[in-house]
Design a protein around this nucleic acid. Sequence first.
DNA 1: TAATGTGAAAGGCTTCACAGCC
DNA 2: GGCTGTGAAGCCTTTCACATTA
Lengths: 203, 203
Amino acid sequence: VYHRALSGLAECGVATVSSEGLALAAGVNPAMLRKDLSHLGSYGTRGVGYEVSDLLRYIGAALGVGSDCCVVIVGVGNLGHALANYGGFPGRGFRVAALVDADPLRTGEEVAGLQVRPLTELEAVVEAHAVRIGVIATPAGVAQDVCDRLVAAGVTGVLNFAPVVLTVPSGVGVRQVDLGTELQILAFHSQQQQRLDVVGVAR
Amino acid sequence: VYHRALSGLAECGVATVSSEGLALAAGVNPAMLRKDLSHLGSYGTRGVGYEVSDLLRYIGAALGVGSDCCVVIVGVGNLGHALANYGGFPGRGFRVAALVDADPLRTGEEVAGLQVRPLTELEAVVEAHAVRIGVIATPAGVAQDVCDRLVAAGVTGVLNFAPVVLTVPSGVGVRQVDLGTELQILAFHSQQQQRLDVVGVAR
DNA sequence: TAATGTGAAAGGCTTCACAGCC
DNA sequence: GGCTGTGAAGCCTTTCACATTA
């Protein structure tokens, strides 16, 4: 998030930023930002702040921005389609190496300049492109199975959009994105808020 | 997450589940699950576990499942398209009331059975359908502006897919889903993992 | 006997507050 | 004067461990 915020500041031509300014842009407390950055080293100047371009480079290096990373998307339904066409990946060092789908009707179809490959070729695809991250955009029922196969093929990270909790061996990273749950959380807060309004509590 | 896990168990015909079993399905520690559930009340039976159907009902009631919630999607690009067609919403009590886009070329187009409305009608749409949650699938540059308008129109929750931190008044909920950041987190861990492998640390 | 509900302990994250430095 | 870097304090979350109950 700091990296993204700094990119924005750099584009606006800002040369220097204080912990307060960057914290505001990142949506955190200034002290927290300083503590986070202190884990990377002392890249600020007391009395002045942080040099935007320098800090961007340091954080980028720590994150490994630059070393391109191959991704495979499994499941080319609505979401998989959108992800394949999503423009934000190349800019951040990610390349969609292949699309895979179980449906024979979709196999061979071209999406975002890539041919959709059959699910049976999943392992071959991962090995051929040295894919490090698998994106699961399949129905919930097959997600764990796809995940197991991805991990067995050598993937070290999984981004899961299916609404199930995945089990993976230690050493493999999992990030869960569940749209239904996110909406439910918002709806819950919205409901609580209304309850407060009715009772008449001041905000 | 517990609600989702219980739904799965119910579909499989499981009648009773222990904190250990449900915790496994939800990806948490059994003690944590028991503590969480204790905030709702004592719905378990010592020596036995939890009645799946009962617990599902209690949690559903606490979450407000059943009272349908109207959602507007702003930005009908790849992601907005996918979200509009996403099948998971109706099943969880959400109804996409309208699609809105700033591009005049898209206006009027029919997506997922809904006509795309111009951005100028955003406020009217929110009021007409009593929309409680806004989904932002626009470019980053206009996200804060769209958010401000949604909030002013009376929305109490925002699900943001644009890669910017949104500022909202207290009382309004925000959930951020940033695909680029998620991938970067996975790539970072993947890189650290490789470093460990090179050094030869046992897992 | 088996599993819940829950005080108490442990651990981790966030914030404060200020010394140190430009 | 102003802002960073950081020890210490505070707060919150998670886990343990066991009394309690069907």
